[in-house]
């Protein structure tokens, strides 16, 4: 297990390095010279040159990459060109906001998805099972941003219950803050609920047919105990992995959701940076989201290996 974790960590490190090179090269290929952008349209050639020397833009790419990467390792993400501030605090603030969305959505998906999956498995073939499957199918078919607009329409415009977008800092009061989170979180939940519920359902159905469950029933155990104590524990193995993978998806999906709801998280920051050609900001946000995504996938792999005794043992044997 230790060796497995170690190799996965080394592998993650390699992926991150390659990724940072990719991000760096692609953003370097972007049109528009940074020095020109800073100096403005009417700056003289000398000014532009002075700026590019000051920023080190005249040096070879590899030197520039080395300096950039070294900075990141020291926690220095550079300065934003358009906001004219250090990037690290901006990005971290946005990351925390995005994480608030992602973590609350993941929590609700875990509870609801597992609950619905178990319900569908226990009442297999009955109306409630078919309803869960039907809802799952629709949940996957409609793109997240369209869900978002439907929710805005219903809860924002017609019922006037919730704000249709934006963000309120927690200093404005917990209620105002929470109200702005509800719709984006519901949207994220809708996107993932189907997969979690379907997976829990199918693995629960498999487990319910195993001999030890039959034995527990034959012993005369109450159905509730059979389902929740015996069956669920084993049925959850694949679900846990999918939840961790989903967490990565949310982090990617926030770009769209945050745009619809004008929620000032990492995704919207990235789009802002792209529109303004703010290279350091683009590099920092993409790298941060991708790192978080990789970490979520790593956690998924490790969890899967950890909770699955078969894999755990086969690994310690090797």
């Amino acid at each position: 297990m230790f060796l497995f974790t170690l190799t996965r960590l080394v592998y993650l490190g390699v992926v991150l390095v390659v990724m940072s090179i990719l991000v760096f090269l692609i953003t370097q290929a972007m049109p528009g010279d940074v020095a020109h952008l800073i100096a403005g349209q009417f700056a003289s050639k000398e000014v532009v040159e002075a700026i590019s020397i000051k920023l080190g833009l005249d040096q070879p790419l590899i030197v520039q990459y080395g300096r950039w990467a070294a900075g990141i390792l020291h926690g220095d993400l550079g300065r934003s060109l358009t906001l004219e501030q250090a990037i690290a605090p901006i990005v971290i603030e946005a990351l925390i906001r995005s994480l608030v969305l992602a973590v609350s959505a993941l929590f609700i998906v875990a509870v609801l998805g597992i609950g619905l999956g178990v319900l569908a498995a226990v009442r297999r073939g009955k109306l409630s099972d078919q309803m869960v499957s039907g809802i799952s199918y629709i949940g996957i078919a409609v793109p997240d941003f369209f869900w978002a607009i439907l929710l805005i329409l219903v809860f924002g415009s017609y019922l006037q219950l919730l704000p249709t977008g934006g963000y309120a800092p927690i200093s404005d009061g917990f209620l105002a803050w929470a109200k702005h989170l509800i719709l984006p979180v519901i949207t994220l939940v809708l996107m993932m609920l189907a997969r979690v519920a379907r997976l829990t359902r199918s693995s629960m159905i498999d487990v319910l047919q195993t001999n030890y469950v039959k034995y527990a029933r034959a012993k005369g155990m109450p159905e509730r105990v059979v389902i929740f104590r015996h069956a669920l524990k084993n049925a959850l193995l694949p679900t846990i992995t999918v939840l961790a993978i989903n967490f990565g998806w949310i982090l990617g999906g926030v770009v769209v959701i945050e745009t619809v709801f004008s929620y000032p998280g990492l995704g919207r920051l990235l789009l802002f940076a792209i529109q303004r050609h703010d290279l350091p900001l683009i590099q920092a946000t993409i790298l941060l989201v991708s790192t978080a995504y990789c970490l979520a996938n790593l956690v998924a792999d490790l969890l899967y290996a950890f909770v699955n005794p078969k894999i755990r043992h086969s690994m310690s044997n090797n």
């Binding site: 992926v15 990724m19 692609i26 990617g252 770009v255 769209v256 991708s290 996938n297």
Partner: peptide
């Protein structure tokens, strides 16, 4: 392909698209 898969799909799309109009 693992490295490419390490990016969230939409982010990789944005990264490729951000280069040009």
């Amino acid at each position: 392909s693992d490295v490419l898969l390490s990016f969230p799909p939409i982010l990789l799309g944005i990264l490729v698209l951000a280069v040009t109009p």
